[in-house]
Computed example of a mutant assay.
Amino acid sequence: MQPIIGIGTNHLIRPSDHFDDNYVDYTQKNYVAAVTAAGALPVLLPIGDPTLADTYIGHVDALLLTGGQDVSPRLYGEDPLPQNGLNDWQRDQFESALIKGAVAAHKPILGICRGLQIINATLGGTNFQDLATQVNTPIGHNQYPTAWGTPTQKIMTTPDSLLNEIWGDTGFVNTFHHQAVATPAPGLTVTATASDGVVEAMEDSRRKIIAVQFHPEMMAETNPKAAKLFAAFIARI
């Protein structure tokens, strides 16, 4: 049987031109395509009551957490900075419950962009709310309008890590974020950074967690290394 990957979704929380106030749950097609290409069956998990999280986890073999809004600093005990963007407290609470449920059930987790940040905050770490003001980095961490799937930013990986196995000591990835990990949660090891020191990946082999700040789902169709990351995640089931 194909392994089943639960993909955490996003949802509209404000009226839009297309849907008005007919709110929807959704995820980008690239996540579904990357999971399918890696030989697994994607199942979308609509945002709901956190008490449902364990039931959802019981029906999947692994959990994928996707990009989206800024993670609320409430999760790590901070007030929002003026540069903090749109928060979605319902999504934060639901995904935190999914993470805790997957860890308790010993099921693999892959976090992408916001997914890395929500994993870190849920498990006891802190995040930078805005790199430009808190880190004053000289590197652009948002490549838009360059094509989503184009690798633009250099990363350095640590030895004996999955990121090192796939990308080697250095490599290039795409980048679309203004928040990032500040203090890693206990048990999470930083396994890749940008040249300015910003965390680009963390891993925890004991809890089967892989989390990256970049977007491999956008590169997976044309980039063998990004595709290999999804295969490695599924292989941990």
Rank of each mutant, 00 (worst) to 15 (best):
I7V: 07
N10K: 11
N10H: 11
H11G: 12
L12C: 12
I13R: 14
S16K: 08
H18V: 15
F19V: 11
D20L: 14
N22P: 10
K29G: 13
Y31W: 06
V32F: 07
A38K: 08
A38C: 11
A40V: 04
V43Q: 08
V43F: 06
D49N: 14
L52K: 13
Y56K: 10
I57L: 02
H59M: 15
V60Q: 02
Q69E: 15
D70P: 06
D70C: 06
V71K: 04
L75D: 04
G77S: 05
G77M: 00
P80E: 05
P82R: 02
Q83E: 15
D88V: 09
W89C: 12
R91H: 06
E95T: 06
G101M: 07
V103K: 04
A104M: 11
H106Q: 15
H106E: 15
P108I: 04
G111F: 03
I112N: 00
C113A: 00
I118C: 08
I119C: 05
N120G: 07
N120T: 06
G125C: 09
N127W: 06
F128W: 10
F128A: 06
Q129P: 02
T133P: 09
T137G: 01
I139T: 09
N142I: 08
T146Q: 14
W148Q: 13
G149A: 09
Q153I: 14
K154T: 14
M156C: 13
T157E: 02
T158S: 12
S161C: 05
N164P: 09
I166Y: 00
D169R: 11
T175N: 04
H177D: 01
H178M: 04
A182V: 10
T183K: 11
A185W: 01
P186S: 04
T189E: 11
T189Q: 11
A192E: 05
T193R: 09
T193V: 14
A194W: 00
G197M: 05
V198R: 04
E200R: 03
E203T: 08
S205W: 13
K208G: 05
A211I: 02
A211D: 02
F214P: 04
H215D: 01
H215M: 05
P216Y: 01
A220S: 08
T222G: 10
A226F: 03
A226D: 05
A227S: 12
A227G: 09
K228F: 11
L229I: 01
F230N: 03
F233C: 00
I234M: 09
I237V: 15
